[in-house]
């Protein structure tokens, strides 16, 4: 496991550097973005999220959207429009998600979707920032007495169709000369039910989704995660349309603002107090007292303050969704870089 984390850490740092600097190097003129203009004109952000999976995005019993991806959507709305509830959430299926984004129906897609070369190049999409690092994880019944992935040779695994998961399994089978069978499902509801009923020996998805799946099993305690992940590091994050760099930049820096808030130790509870005439230059920049960081993104300078006050820092959001108050998934790779994780960001000056 440590080997993977180390390798992943390197890739992640590299990715963050590339994403951060390659994007900002081109950022000369302040925002002139068709998407940003459209969002402001509409007075509402249209955010594509999952149709419903605990952890990332789901509607609670009262019909309110919750989750890690949802928090990012709300933060963008908060930055641009000054209110975290000016978002229209569109639940998208894995099949249609990129088409819906490309057509302009949604402004940004934050739907536990993996960053990949093909999606960046062939599908014409930008990949602003990663809000969840994971790897394709396998969940099996403890009663199978399987401890490692290669032992699943001959087993059948439930998978959602229209994902990178199928390809990863095909690659893994070929590399290890084994045969893990797959059963392809259209919707998570049926896939979860089939796994629970014993139609498959296990379920696979990214680590966060598997944790969500386990929470819907009849006896979650009967299930365990295998230590190996396949398909390398799976960075999940937001997607935007190519050709609107200013918008992509804004989406990216909204995520970075939530990370910066955690680094600076700003929480929802104390954001307003700490914004009262701080001395620390980092805090002054964050709260928009020095510099014109908001203007450069095409929003006002209090954008980051609002995010910290209304949404909270990244750590708080993680805790409420995947962490102890949510699905109980350890922070792991999603720790800040100085805690051995991959969540890193460029400096602000």
């Amino acid at each position: 496991m440590t080997g993977i984390v180390k390798r992943a850490a390197m890739i992640g740092a590299l990715a963050a550097a590339l994403l951060g600097f390659a994007g900002s190097a081109r950022a000369q003129a302040p925002a002139d973005s068709p998407t940003l203009k459209a969002v402001k004109g509409r007075g509402q952000l249209v955010c594509g999220v999952d149709t419903g999976i605990p952890g990332y995005a789901y509607q609670d019993a009262g019909g309110t959207w919750q989750g890690l991806d949802v928090a990012w959507c709300r933060a963008i709305a908060d930055a641009v429009l000054g209110a975290p509830d000016k978002v229209k959430f569109i639940g998208t299926t894995s099949k249609e998600r990129f088409s819906v984004l490309k057509s302009g129906e949604i402004d940004v897609l934050i739907r536990d979707s993996e960053y990949s070369f093909i999606r960046n190049t062939q599908l014409g999409l930008d990949e602003p920032a990663v809000n969840f690092y994971t790897g394709q994880t396998f969940m099996v019944r403890k009663s199978l007495n399987v401890a490692h992935l290669p032992e699943l040779n001959g087993a059948t695994i439930c998978v959602l169709t229209g994902t990178t998961l199928e390809t990863n399994i095909a690659d893994y089978n070929r590399a290890h000369n084994i045969k893990i069978n797959t059963l392809l499902f259209e919707r998570p509801e049926e896939a979860f039910a089939a796994a629970d009923a014993g139609r498959c020996d296990g379920y696979t998805d990214d680590g966060g989704s598997v944790a969500a799946a386990r929470s819907t099993m009849k006896r979650p305690g009967d299930w365990m995660f295998l230590p190996e992940t396949i398909g390398g590091l799976e960075p999940l994050g937001a997607f935007t349309r190519q050709g609107d760099e200013a918008w992509t930049r804004l989406v990216k820096w909204v995520h970075f603002a939530m990370l910066e808030a955690e680094i600076l130790g700003i929480t929802r509870a104390d954001a307003m107090d700490r914004a009262k005439d701080p001395k620390d230059p980092d805090l002054r920049r964050f709260f928009g007292l020095d510099g014109d960081f908001g203007k450069l993104l095409g929003v006002d300078n209090q954008w980051a303050l609002r995010i910290a006050r209304d949404i909270g820092n990244y750590g708080e959001v993680y805790e409420a969704t995947f962490g102890g108050s949510g699905l109980g998934l350890p922070r792991g790779m999603n720790n800040l870089f100085d805690h051995g994780g991959l969540q890193a960001l460029p400096t602000w000056h």
Binding site: A38, K95, E96, S99, V100, K102, S103, G104
Partner: peptide, 20 residues
């Protein structure tokens, strides 16, 4: 139905979007 979800947006001019 799938066509309406995935393909129709391609046939609309840029900036025009229909409720799903």
């Amino acid at each position: 139905l799938f066509m309406s979800a995935v393909m129709v947006p391609l046939f609309l001019p840029q900036g025009v979007s229909l409720d799903r």
